[in-house]
Write a protein that binds this DNA or RNA. Structure first.
Length: 439
DNA sequence: CTCTGATCATGT
DNA sequence: ACATGATCAGAG
């Protein structure tokens, strides 16, 4: 077993792992003996490369240096970008003890302040032993401390309030509370409520990991700002306009009068200026770098009930080649947070609704499953070349996502569905469902 | 009313 | 020239 006296020594040694496959590293032949072990790649690196004995100790892997080893996969997207394969799981959350811990001394931080992340490339269809390590990275949690600390406290508060069973990964920005256990049926007790809760562990969320991965060659910089959540950030941008109509805001922002017909996307024109365009958000604030945020503008009534469905971009048939579990749409919905800029004005014309506030929504496993049904119906329709099989509204119980037309005047959208790989249709999301997701 | 197929100004 | 983000408007 190798001891490292300094970080530099550890990193220098780790440099040699680049380019190695797990087969080459697997000195104890774990690939053959522990076929079903999900953590096997990590164990191979620990035992085969660093020559540590197998351990499940609470102490950090490189305890002298306070560094925990994590072996994590990435994929290359079609456009060549890197994307983290999974979230990184940290320590289990003990519902009974966490309520007495402070962040600074919590078990969570004790073990996870610094992570040595070994990045290997995951390739579908390839044997695990053939996956290759491409790079490594010493990640220091303090680089995003203010956000992570805030996330920690959000999770802790929920448990204190007897709501451990209501925890969800969507509650937080970077640090999540992800479910654990062999299947979805396992339950444990919680301190301040009778309700049993699913066991959970802290994790660094997938979208955050992607941000970490892409920053691999960038200098670490520490945030100075006091803004802790995207919610805070957006709210600061829109605050001064609350109560004004869309037209008033547009005119104030652009110093131009809106003449002629009011564009249907006036809300987006405003939010592009007030907050930034979706693909500019990354540059506006580091928070946007590590999670996918999409801003949507929606009309609501006085109780925030949506007046319209959420619409998405035009779909193309080739997007539906992969089964749901491997699809880009699934990844998108798992990862994305929608920021809904709400304009109140039931019965009012477009342009004359007033800015009311902002809501955030994310999707849980049930939602994702339901979206999958919609997705698979589109695949069936494509496979059988039968538009009758498309997921029109209300084609199955509790449907949350539906297909809808989206074209120019005169398009007979559904009937041109198979014409070429460009459809005049899109997905729309049920408004009552969206309302139920707002916090 | 609400639902759902149809439509449009703008951005790229 | 067409997709996007969103609303419109007729049907029921």
């Amino acid at each position: 077993m190798i001891k490292f006296d300094t970080e530099e020594a550890l990193l220098k040694f780790t440099e040699n792992i680049k380019g190695r496959t797990f087969k080459e590293l697997d000195k104890l032949n774990l690939l053959a003996t522990k076929k079903r072990d999900k953590g096997i790649l990590g164990k191979i690196v620990e035992t085969g490369f660093y020559r540590y004995p197998l351990n499940n100790d609470i102490e950090a892997d490189f305890s002298e240096l306070g560094i925990e080893l994590k072996v994590s996969g990435f994929e290359r997207t079609k456009t060549g970008l890197l994307s983290a394969k999974e979230r990184i799981s940290l320590s289990m959350i003990d519902y009974h003890t966490i309520i007495h811990e402070t962040y600074e001394f919590s078990k969570f931080l004790l073990k996870n302040r610094k992570l040595l992340i070994i990045w290997y490339e995951y390739e579908r269809g390839k044997e695990r032993g053939d996956f290759k390590v491409w790079d490594y990275q010493l990640y220091n949690m303090s680089q995003d401390e203010h956000v992570i600390k805030n996330d920690f406290h959000l999770i802790q508060e929920k448990i204190k309030n007897g709501k451990a069973h209501l925890l969800s990964e969507g509650d937080t920005s970077y640090l999540g509370a992800c479910t654990k256990g062999r299947d979805g049926k396992v339950r444990v007790t919680q301190p301040n409520a009778e309700e049993p809760a699913r066991p959970r562990a802290f994790c660094l969320k997938n979208s955050y990991m992607r941000g970490i991965l892409r920053s691999i060659n960038e200098e670490q910089k520490t945030e100075q700002t006091t803004i802790k959540t995207v919610r805070d950030y957006i709210y600061k941008q829109i605050e001064t306009y609350i109560g004004m109509t869309q037209l008033e805001i547009y005119e104030k922002l652009t110093n131009k009068q809106m003449t002629g017909r009011i564009p249907k996307n006036i809300g987006k024109m405003i939010s592009d200026q007030m907050i930034g365009k979706d693909n500019e958000l990354k540059q506006k604030h580091d928070l946007f770098n590590k999670t996918t945020y999409i801003i949507k503008n929606v009309p609501v009534d006085e109780d925030y009930n949506l007046l319209e469905r959420l619409t998405f971009r035009n779909i193309v048939q080739s997007e539906f080649a992969d089964p749901w579990d491997e699809s880009d749409w699934k990844k998108y919905f798992e990862e994305v947070t929608f920021l809904l800029i709400c304009y109140e004005g039931k019965g009012k014309k477009n342009g004359h609704r007033t800015l009311k506030g902002m809501k955030e929504i994310t999707f849980n496993a049930d939602d994702i499953d339901s979206f999958g049904k919609t997705y698979e119906k589109i695949r069936q329709a494509i496979g059988k070349k039968d538009i009758a099989l498309l997921p029109y509204p209300k084609t199955f119980p509790y449907q949350k996502l539906e297909i809808a037309p989206k074209g120019l005047g005169g398009d007979d959208a559904y009937n041109t569905f198979f014409d070429r790989d460009r459809t005049k249709t899109c997905l729309m999301m049920d408004k009552d469902f969206v309302r139920s997701k707002m916090k």
